[in-house]
Amino acid sequence: MADLTTAIAVKESTLTTEHALSPDSGPVSDDMVFQTRDLSVYYGDFRAVRDVELAIPERQITALIGPSGCGKSTVLRSFNRMNDLIPTARVDGTLLYRGVDLYADRVDPVEVRRRIGMVFQKPNPFPKSIFDNVAYGPRIAGIRKKGELNDIVEASLHKAALWDEVKDRLSASATGMSGGQQQRLCIARAIASSPDVLLMDEPCSALDPIATARIEDLMAELKNDYTIMIVTHNMQQAARVSDRTAFFTAEVDIHTDQRTGLLVEYDLTTTIFSNPADERTENYITGRFG
């Protein structure tokens, strides 16, 4: 009956255990939400990203930037195990979430995603009403009472700065909203599950400048309650919203023509943009590369 469990489940068990954090890898800092060590992501035999070392502090915005194909989205998706959905993907190395190995055998990806929410590149509201979209997370978590759901939906929409625009049409279909509204609805949907962390994968890439500005303002607000990680291809956006920035780049294997991403530099955003330590970072920031 091994066929019943997905291929991923089998693969999970084979990789992480041997890479459990060894005693000499340094103390695990309490105020860090995520800590990674030697994190690599593979698609089949192909290593898409290698050797990522990150420590993500609580209630700050951390931006992952870099040229396209550098694996920043892949890294982000390994933080709530969305990569599990790709049949050939597997993760190597250690990824600690509040001290717990996210890729330990017993960890249920579903439980992980309820604590670590995600907002996607393209707004992807469900073809349901606005209310049902926001209430989706709480409902699958077992909340059935109408009053409680109402409160959660209202609070989430307030936090996502959408309440005033939609309070009169909660039962209207979500697919009729503008792109910017849809993306804020997706943020409200993620918040409604009361997550600990929000992962945002280029949340503004499909939006116009005005909608982008609203989302950026919103992120500054949300930072008070959530730890946020954002992938962006827009350096100005990273500079505007983030506290810390990780710069990734890709190296090309001249024999196979495959690109493997790697982390170049991770520091305070101000440092990255004013005084980067690595030449590659500087070239990218100043527009000489990428």
Partner: peptide, 15 residues
């Protein structure tokens, strides 16, 4: 069925 719909649901912790 678009993959983005599935991702949206998985992303908030649906089984």
């Amino acid at each position: 069925v678009p993959q983005s719909l599935r991702e949206g649901a998985y992303g908030v912790g649906a089984t």
